[in-house]
Every structure is written in C-alpha cells, then in structure tokens.
Design a protein around this nucleic acid. Sequence first.
DNA 1: CGGTTTTGACCCGCGC
DNA 2: GCGCGGGTCAAAACCG
Length: 260
Amino acid sequence: MAASLGLAHDASCYAAYPPAAAAASSYFPSPPPPGDLVAEFPPTAAATAMADDYYYYYFQFGEEMGGARAPGCGGGYCSPPAPAFDNGMSLLSYGGVDGDGRRPMSGPAAGTGGNGGGGRPPASRIGFRTRSEVDVLDDGFKWRKYGKKAVKSSPNPRNYYRCSSEGCGVKKRVERDSDDPRYVITTYDGVHNHAAPGAAYLCPPPPRGATATAAAPCFSSPCSGSASAALVAAPSWSGAFDAWEAQLAAAAAHSSESSY
DNA sequence: CGGTTTTGACCCGCGC
DNA sequence: GCGCGGGTCAAAACCG
C-alpha cells in the first residue's frame, strides 16, 4: 500500500504533503517563481490527457534537478516554495483550465492574486506527476481502494481510492505514467473536510522567527490545529499565502508561549 | 471481527 | 440507438 519500506522515507518526504495540501487549494504559500516553470503543461501524453479540467502539478525530484534534500526532510515536512527547490522537489509546471474550458495558463499569474491572473482559482481536482518507485505515496491521509481499471490511454491500470474518513468524499486516482513508468500520476478530486491523520506532514508550523519572505525549506515539528485549519480553509493562492502569513504572524506574536 | 482489497458487473456520458 | 471508455458499486476474499 503506502510507501513503507526502502524508499518509503524518501517517498513520503518528497511527495507526501503536496497532494493533500494542494487538494485543499492551499498548499503553496506562494506560486513557484516563473524561472522554475519549464512548460505550461505536463510533458507526457498521459499527463496531458489527465489535465483537461484540473490543475496539474509536475514534480520532479532530487538528482535530476541537481537538488539535495534538506536535512529536516526525513523528519516530516519540506516546504515547497522557491527556496525549497533545494530540498529535492521541483515544481516544473502547473496548469489548468478556465471557466470556458480553455487552458489560460501563462505561468503562476494564472493562479495568483486572488485569481487576478485571469485563471480561475485552483480547482478542487489536482494532479501530480511524481517520480517514485512506490505507486501509492503516503500523503498523510487514509485511503480505501474502491476500484481498479485498465485505461486505454495507458498500459498501466488506474487505481481508484476514496478517503476513509467518514463524510469525506475526496477521491484520488493513481496510475503509472505510460510514457515513463518511473513516474506516478496521482489525481486528487475534492477537498478534505478534516485534518490529516498524519498532519505533521501536511501543515507544518512556521519556524520560530521566520518571516513570510524567508520560508524555511523544511520543518519537522507537528503543527497546531489552528494552523491546519487556516491552511485547509485557504481558497486560493493568495488565500494560502495569507494563511501562511497569518501563521507566521501568529508564531511571531506568540513565540514565547508556542509549543510545537 | 472489522476494515481493506480485489474484481467483475453495472452505470453513465460521449461520440458516431 | 449503439458501442466504447471511464468511473463506481458491491460481494467475496483477504488480512491484521
């Protein structure tokens, strides 16, 4: 099932948090810098086919980007903002469609500034392409498999999962990239209405003394419930950033009494 | 024994 | 209307 042996630690570090948090449309405190945009759309046919109506994130890890995991990664959380490209994860592209079904992507602007870029806010359906040897990446949530289907566009079967939490209708699809089996394409559909059981991965607290413009690449402490709620509730990129800033501000204001 | 996985059947939307 | 493909259901098997 979920990553558990061998590369498990790496897998959870590299790919655990982005899906769940991004599914909440709130993962990234800020959009990736334009310079890190390699392509507007997923590079593979399978990925492209899956990106018709949801935001798609293309992650690539480690050695290919010349990056190195930050020391704290194995302990729990790596932040994905720009500075974090040194932590082994890279956001290569992201895209989506606007309300007319077109792909309006012009880089990060499409999802920033409260939709000011012309694109709609991040959709509740998000896809990731992650390089992993394990099919099911541990994202902190508990999933129950409810289907498996051979799809015509890929020689690899597609697996369907539903969040096991009662009342949470989030689903995800997992399949190997037909063009490059080293990659796993994971699609999240919906937003969790609850905190992740493995919340330490998903909503880290800001580091003591951190500022909004200097997010540390990795954290390892569990987060508070309020911080989690703020992140989950953030409706857009800007909202996510606001939430992030709120966390930072709160941490700064209460650093003397915070208890991570 | 309860939760999860498996897997064939079924349903539904879409294109022709 | 029909066939196809994708998504879901649900019962049985499996597992801790």
